[in-house]
């Protein structure tokens, strides 16, 4: 087994554990490279037929290319796709000019809360990784969220030897992170090896490319000439810029990510 096989095998094991423990489970798909890789791993884990819904939280502010990519893959991979929006907030005109924290909270966190309630999900699979952001380094593979989505990072139970905490009483749900141990570089190495479809926005056009994808108003491309997967891999081996440098919600104020996270942001 090489190191990509090891990463893959561990993720598949965790995905299958999550499904064995929780039949009311869904995968959260942001349509970015990480959660698309997770989607691919779910297909592998279940031999091409993912036995649970794939949930896309749609803020309506995503890029056109993201919607196209989502719909194309949903059809090709025969996904049970659920698109969820906070219709109420959208009707009242919520958008990033009303404050980034308020907008993320209403259109992502609230929309997700509504979807979890509506479908009664007890567990969600997410494609987050430890190397993305300092606070994500504190995550467990199985991590409970209470009814108001709070993450009690100070009182986390121990997690060892691929044995996970599966308590999900009342309105608690468990966040499952099968790709926690991957790095951004690993993702691209794996995408290359497995020929996983990726959104063309990741490749450079006119000296710019997107390294991380979010909502249109809050995501900026980085300076780059990497127009192929190989060039991206080469770029990542040398970069010192943070992956989420183009994501406004991480920077707006110190500790914003921490605040968002403890409020239930993905």
């Amino acid at each position: 087994m090489d190191y990509l096989d090891e990463l893959e095998s561990k993720s598949i094991y965790i995905i299958r554990e999550a499904y064995e423990r929780f039949k009311r489970i869904a995968m959260l798909w942001s349509v970015g490279k990480d959660s698309t890789t997770l989607l691919y791993l779910c297909r592998k884990a279940f031999y091409g037929e993912i036995p649970f819904p794939v949930l896309h939280i749609d803020t309506t502010f995503k890029f056109k290319e993201m919607y196209e990519f989502r719909d194309r893959l949903a059809k090709e991979w025969n996904l049970n796709l659920i698109v969820a929006r906070n219709e109420e907030a959208l009707k009242q005109g919520m958008n990033p000019s009303k404050g980034k924290l308020a907008c993320c909270t209403a259109l992502k966190t609230e929309a997700l809360k509504q979807a979890i309630k509506k479908y009664g999900f007890k567990a969600l699979l997410l494609g987050i990784r430890r190397d993305e952001h300092g606070i994500r380094a504190k995550e467990r593979y199985f991590s409970p969220r209470d009814a108001s989505f709070r993450w009690n990072y100070k009182e986390q139970p121990a997690e060892l030897w691929d044995q996970f905490n599966t308590q999900a009483d009342g309105e608690t749900h468990i966040r499952v992170h099968p790709m926690l141990h991957w790095t951004e570089l690993n993702i691209w190495e794996y995408i290359k090896r497995e020929q996983i479809p990726v959104n063309p926005m990741y490749f450079a056009k006119n000296g710019k490319r997107y390294r991380s994808l979010g909502c249109m108003p809050c995501t900026k491309p980085i300076e780059s000439n990497a127009s192929t997967i190989d060039e991206i891999i080469e770029e990542l081996k040398h970069t010192k810029e943070a992956e989420r440098a183009g994501r406004a919600q991480d920077k707006e104020q110190a500790y914003m990510m921490q605040k968002l996270r403890s409020l239930g942001y993905m």
Binding site: R130, D131, G134, I135, A137, K138, Y153, K154, Q156, H181, T183, L185, K237, Y255, Q258
Partner: peptide, 28 residues
């Protein structure tokens, strides 16, 4: 010690992970 509380109290509350590379390996 990325979490706010940790900065203020100067201690590591939870286990945290980061990555660094040498030409030989990537360390978590």
């Amino acid at each position: 010690d990325h979490l706010k509380e940790e900065r203020e109290q100067e201690m590591t509350i939870d286990t945290a992970q980061l990555f660094f590379k040498t030409p030989k390996a990537c360390y978590t």
